[in-house]
Design a protein around this nucleic acid. Structure first.
Lengths: 201, 201
DNA sequence: CGTCTATTTGAATGTACTCAAAAGCGGTGG
DNA sequence: CCACCGCTTTTGAGTACATTCAAATAGACG
């Protein structure tokens, strides 16, 4: 039913023929996860690349002190998973948790390799979205190094308003590399600034 | 002369025929840079993807306060450039500086697009190395969030001993997201720890 | 409605930074 | 061959941004 969303996603980079699209569909499966269930888990091989058609997830890892760190947040129309594990087909380090009822269209590693051969455009598609993801990771590193917590939050809010509404501040704070308490303090500070500005007008 | 190094680099992921290899070579050019010259610069479109055959570089950006932040360090047998600018062919934000005499084998964006069509294996190669680079960026974000400055330095030293010898501590500190002074203090602290441990044996 | 989790707030603390100055190192020219 | 210059590294003192811990409040879900 949500196939159209996936088709539109592909169409941003490649023009698939009806045959190619049907071939891809025939190798795809629908999966669904309840709130709190895991799409990937530490120590397990991530066998699927997952396109979210409904719900939201967070991908995180747990450091040696038991602390969770959110690597990625994702909502409808995004691809999600433990990418390093998927491409190497080795056990991964990341958990991907459904933050609510989640539905995906997923392609297994083996099917994807087949599809790369049968539908070369798909190889192009994944090269392009990986390059995009790489570029945005680079921007994120850049952002984490050059900017303080408040600026990082403002940038995030501007870039992903849809995520800010869908996902709890706790996870957003972790994604932004700060404590939940500190994010709360930042938001207060920003409110005060805006109010002060209005008062002085 | 250093073509063999590039061929070996390709061979890590794809098996090229002699014809394919010659085709790639015919679209490649050798470039060289003196110490201090720029391979990419802010505001310019990065027209080439560059494979380093000699020397070392750093890729950095300058934030709004005029501070430099090293995104990437690279030596012989690595690919370098302003990736986001290259893939979009839009003006970039990054400087790539030759830290000493540097030689590269470079392929222009246009030639590369042609080669993707003529040599599908090349599209596979770049998909694979981009995925690798993506995965390593992910690890870097993970590392920056979960670990303090000392642990990040120790991890770096273990992972890239060749780079630690080739490139000044100042740039390494920047790459690791800390001030040069602080890296110096960390190194002293590590020495003291080792000495103390020896003394107590 | 009650419980469980998320968010807010405050106080004390710490990690890493800035600034300034001294010491080390490498290259260049007299 | 040595002296000087510029750049990198080291060291110390003071500071700031962000954290941890604890407690109170608010919100979500059954």
């Amino acid at each position: 039913m949500e196939d159209a969303l996936l088709f539109a996603n592909f169409s941003r980079y490649v023009a698939l023929t009806e045959n190619e699209w049907q071939l891809i569909l025939s190798k795809s499966i629908a999966r669904s996860f309840k709130r709190g269930e895991y799409i990937t888990a530490e120590g397990e091989v991530n066998r699927y690349t997952n396109f979210i058609t409904k719900g939201s997830c967070r991908t995180y890892y747990i450091d040696e002190n038991g602390q969770e760190h959110v690597i990625q947040l994702a909502i409808r129309d995004w691809w999600i998973g433990d990418f390093p594990s998927f491409i190497t087909q080795q056990p991964g380090q990341l958990y991907t948790e459904a933050l609510e009822e989640v539905e995906t269209i997923s392609i297994s590693f083996d099917h994807l390799q087949q599809l790369y051969s049968d539908v070369p455009k798909l190889e192009r598609f994944f090269r392009l979205i990986t390059q995009q993801a790489y570029a945005s990771f680079q921007k994120r590193i850049l952002l984490n190094m050059g900017f303080d917590a408040e600026q990082r939050y403002l940038d995030f809010r501007e870039k992903y308003p849809a995520i800010e509404n869908a996902i709890s501040q706790k996870h957003i704070a972790s994604y932004l590399g700060m404590s939940a308490e500190f994010l709360s303090k930042i938001k207060k500070r920003i409110h005060l600034k805006l109010k002060t500005r209005k008062d002085s007008l």
